[in-house]
Simulated scan of single mutants.
Amino acid sequence: MKIVVSLLSSFVLFAVLIVSCDTSQAPPTTVEEKEPLAFNAPQPEYTVTVTEAELASPRKELKGQLNGVNITIDYGSPSTKGRAIWGSLVPYGEVWRTGANEATRFTIDKTVLVGEAELAAGTYSLFTIPTEKEWEIIFNKVVDQWGAYEYDNTKDVLRVPAQPVSVDSSSTTLEFRLAPGKIVMQWDKLILPIPLTEA
């Protein structure tokens, strides 16, 4: 009888160990799991060209097509240089140029939906207001402006919310890329997906 009880106890202990080692319910640890960028889906074609390499924060231009829409993003690409970025170099709760030097310029050749809001074809300056939990994406009709020093919110065409995602991998420079159904900004250990589809 003691042998049976001992075997039963051993079996129960073994079952508990198996359950406790099950990682199927473990929290997500990769970008793909945390934020569905659909890396396994066909990727949009795009190129990123350095247009002003001599600057401390080189000027770059992304060109590509997403959901039938031709997109150009012209941006300054700052480096971390060992600095704390979010909530420090880039303060929370303040309008940010979303890059360096001149404000980022965003061009589309068709009307699109940014999230669920419509944005007409054209060129805009792209600003953001970062916070720890939610960002605000701003499209402003004053295209050529230096940083956000003369930013005028009465010239805003559209404001939409976006959810930042913290990731383990770090990008030492600010970069934009295209992913299925969205534009993605990444810098330091943060990515910001901006859903975009043809209207």
Rank of each mutant, 00 (worst) to 15 (best):
P195C: 12
V165R: 00
P130S: 06
A120E: 15
D152S: 12
W135A: 09
T72M: 10
R159G: 05
E33G: 10
R59W: 13
T197S: 14
T51G: 04
E198Q: 13
F39D: 04
S24I: 14
K182A: 15
V157F: 00
W146G: 07
V12H: 04
Q186L: 05
P195I: 08
G181K: 08
F14C: 05
K133M: 04
P28V: 12
V160G: 12
C21I: 15
A100G: 01
T131H: 14
M1Y: 13
P91R: 00
S166Q: 11
R177Y: 03
P193F: 01
Y75H: 04
L196H: 13
I18P: 03
T128G: 01
I85K: 03
T123N: 03
L196V: 14
V50E: 06
K141M: 09
L158G: 00
A15T: 12
E132N: 02
N67F: 08
V165Q: 04
Y149L: 10
P78T: 09
T51P: 05
L174R: 04
K141A: 08
L7Y: 13
I3S: 09
V4T: 05
P91W: 07
V160E: 11
G181W: 11
V157G: 07
S9W: 02
N70I: 15
V19D: 12
E150C: 02
Y92M: 05
L126R: 00
T29R: 12
E136Y: 05
S9E: 07
I71H: 01
P28H: 11
T173Y: 06
Q186H: 08
F106K: 00
A100M: 03
S88R: 02
Y92C: 06
D168E: 14
G115V: 11
G93S: 01
P44R: 02
L174A: 08
N70Y: 10
